[in-house]
Design a protein around this nucleic acid. Structure first.
Lengths: 335, 335
DNA sequence: TTGAAAGCGTTACCAC
DNA sequence: GTGGTAACGCTTTCAA
C-alpha cells in the first residue's frame, strides 16, 4: 500500500508538503503542487482515512440511522443523502435499526457513533429527551428527517397538513364518513410521522364536522399486509366508510386489495387515498399526497455539511411541500 | 471525549492492560478485567475506531457497493448483510452507484475502498477483468452477490435455472408462444443477472421447441415503467404471446398494468410470471420465482467474516435455491 | 515555500 | 500479569 512517504521520496519533497499539496492547501509552489499531484495519481496514492482521521479528529463520515432500509421511503432518502455526501467526499455509514428498539438504544445511546462519524442523520425517528441529552453530550452534529426537535436542524413535510389535504380532497368529493388507517401507538420505535398524521386526521374530522366513529380509526402498521387487514376490518363494518385515508401508500395498496377481494368497487363504492407517492402508486392508479423523498435526503445532507463547515447558523427547520396527486382511486361519494 | 488513558488512570493500571482487558484478550487477571470493564462502562469509554484502525491496520468496516439502493432487492440484501455484520461488530459503509457508470468506476477503480474497509461486498455487478485486477491489487477481501467470478466467493441463485423454472411452469399450462421482458444490453452498469436470465430464456425456448420470434424478446429495464412499455409493445403485436415471462417482478407488474389498460384479461388471455417475489407480488396476485433475498445478504456477510477471520478456504460459490410460487397471474393457455 | 518533528489514540511487542 | 514504549500514517505547528 503506497503511503505519503512514498510519494514524498518519489518527488523529493517532505511529507508535509505532499500533504499540503494534495489537499489543495496554500503554501505550495505551483510547480511542486503539479509534481506531487502527478506522482500521487501515478502511484495510485490515496491518503488513509484512518490516519487522516486520527490526525484531524474528523472522519469525513456521516452516520445514517434508519428504522428500516427496506422501506421504499427510507431507501429513497438514503439515496438522496448519498448523492450529496459522496459529491463532497463524505462516506456514508449505515445503521439499520430494522425496527428493533434494542438496536435503537444501542445505536443512539452509545458513544459508538460520535467516535466514528462527524455527523449523524436520523431518519423517521423522534429522539426522546434521554436520547437528545445523550447525543448532545457528544460533539457530532445531528440532523433529523421526518421529525422535529428544537435542538437540531430538520427536514420534513407538514404531516398534519398532509392529513388535512387528503381529507379535504375527500370531502370535496362529498365524503363524510372517512376512515383512517395508520400506525399503532405501541410501535417498537417512536416515529414522529404517524402521530402527526393521526392528529391531523382527528383535527380535520373535528374541524369539518365529519362522522366521528372510533371504528373508523384502525391500525395498518405502515405495511401492505397491515393495510390489507385494516381494509378487511373496515369493509366488514355494518356502516361502512365511503372513503379511506391511509397514512402511507403501502397501507393504501393493502386496502385496495381488500376492496378487490371483497368485490367492493373503487372508487364507485370506496375511495382510497394514500401518502408518499410510492413508486407503485402510479401503477396502481392510487390517489395520494406526494412528498418529495429524495429531496429530503439531499436537503438534510446539505444541512449536515453546512454544520460541518462550521456555519454557526441556528438550527434550520425545513418544511418541504407535499402535493395532492389525484388518480383513479378516489371519486364522488356514493349517493 | 474519554480516552483509554482516562480509564487507565481511573483503575490505576496501564493502557496496555486496559486495552487487553476490554478486548477480551488473555493475560489479564480476572479481578482487573472486571475492574476495567466496570470503569469503562461507568466512564462511557469506547475505543476510537480511528485510532484502533491505525494501530491494527483493520477498520472493522465493510464496504457495500450497490447499483441502486432504492431497488427493493438490493435494499433487502443490504438489510441481511447489516444484520450479521452489526452482530459481529462491523460497520457497514454504503456506496450507492445509483446506476452511474462513472460512479462505478470511481468506486471500484480507486484505492479509496481498500483504505477504508477491510472487505468489499459487491451487489449485482459483474466485475470486469480490469476491475478484478484492480481490486486484487489491494488487500481487501471481496464477496459478490448475484454474480460470479472464479476469484472471489459469491452468493447467488442460478439465474439460468430460474428462467427454466418459469418457462416450464408456463409450458405445463400449455403455452407455446412466450414472450420475454428483460434488461437492455446497453445498460450503463454491467449486471450478471439479466444476461443469465436471458440466456436461460433463449436456451429453454430452444430446448422445448417453443415459438422463436424476435418480436417476443423485449426490453423492460427492470422497472415497472419499463415493464409497462414492454407490455404494451407485446400486446400490440398482431400475433400476441399467450404468456409473458418477466425477469423481475417489477417488470411483471408493469406488464400486468399494460394488460389491464388494454382490457386483456389475466390469466384468461394472458399469463404473466415474474422473478423475485417482491413484497408487492403477493398483493398483486403475481406468480413468480421466489429467490431468498435477505438470506443472500446474510450469507455473503458470513462469507466475508470468514475471510476476515482468516479461514484460508478456497472461494466458496454458494448457489441458493429459487422456488416457483404459483398465484393467480398464470393459467392455462387459451385454446 | 519548505521540512523536521510533535502529536492523534490505540495496539502490540518486549521486558519485567 | 503487567507496564513501558514504539509503531500506525497521517496532519499541523513551528522554524528555517
Amino acid at each position: 500500500m503506497t503511503g505519503i512517504k512514498d510519494v514524498a521520496t518519489e518527488v523529493g519533497l517532505s511529507t508535509a508538503t505532499v500533504s499540503r499539496a494534495l489537499r489543495g492547501q496554500p503554501g505550495v509552489s505551483l510547480a511542486n503542487r503539479r509534481l506531487v499531484e502527478e506522482a500521487a495519481t501515478r502511484l495510485g496514492y490515496v491518503a488513509s482515512r484512518t490516519a487522516a482521521g486520527l490526525a484531524t479528529g474528523r472522519t469525513r463520515t456521516v452516520a445514517v440511522v434508519v428504522p428500516y432500509v427496506t422501506r421504499w421511503f427510507f431507501a429513497a432518502v438514503i439515496h438522496g443523502a448519498e448523492q450529496v455526501l459522496s459529491e463532497r467526499g463524505y462516506d456514508l455509514m449505515l445503521f439499520n435499526l430494522a425496527g428493533s428498539a434494542e438496536a435503537r438504544h444501542r445505536v443512539l445511546e452509545t458513544h459508538q457513533l460520535s467516535k466514528r462519524a462527524d455527523a449523524l442523520m436520523i431518519l423517521g425517528l423522534q429522539p426522546n429527551e434521554q436520547e437528545q441529552q445523550w447525543l448532545t453530550g457528544h460533539d457530532a452534529c445531528v440532523v433529523l428527517v421526518g421529525a422535529h426537535v428544537p435542538l437540531w436542524p430538520s427536514v420534513r413535510i407538514d404531516d398534519h397538513e398532509v392529513s388535512r389535504t387528503a381529507l379535504h380532497h375527500l370531502t370535496e368529493l362529498g365524503h363524510r364518513r372517512i376512515a383512517y388507517v395508520g400506525g399503532s401507538p405501541e410501535e417498537a420505535l417512536d416515529f414522529a410521522t404517524p402521530r402527526a398524521r393521526h392528529r391531523g386526521y382527528l383535527d380535520t374530522v373535528a374541524d369539518l364536522g365529519l362522522d366521528r366513529d372510533p371504528c373508523l380509526d384502525v391500525v395498518g402498521g405502515f405495511t401492505v399486509t397491515g393495510g390489507l387487514a385494516a381494509g378487511h376490518q373496515l369493509l366488514a363494518l355494518a356502516d361502512r366508510p365511503t372513503a379511506v385515508y391511509c397514512a402511507s401508500d403501502e397501507m393504501a395498496i393493502g386496502v385496495l386489495r381488500a376492496a378487490r377481494d371483497r368485490g367492493v368497487r373503487v372508487p364507485d363504492e370506496l375511495s382510497v387515498i394514500g401518502v408518499d407517492d410510492h413508486e407503485m402508486a402510479e401503477h396502481l392508479d392510487l390517489t395520494t399526497v406526494r412528498q418529495p423523498v429524495v429531496e429530503q435526503g439531499r436537503t438534510a445532507a446539505q444541512q449536515l455539511l453546512g454544520l460541518l463547515d462550521g456555519s454557526p447558523s441556528p438550527p434550520a427547520h425545513v418544511v418541504l411541500d407535499a402535493e395532492l396527486v389525484v388518480r383513479g382511486s378516489t371519486g364522488p361519494a356514493p349517493a
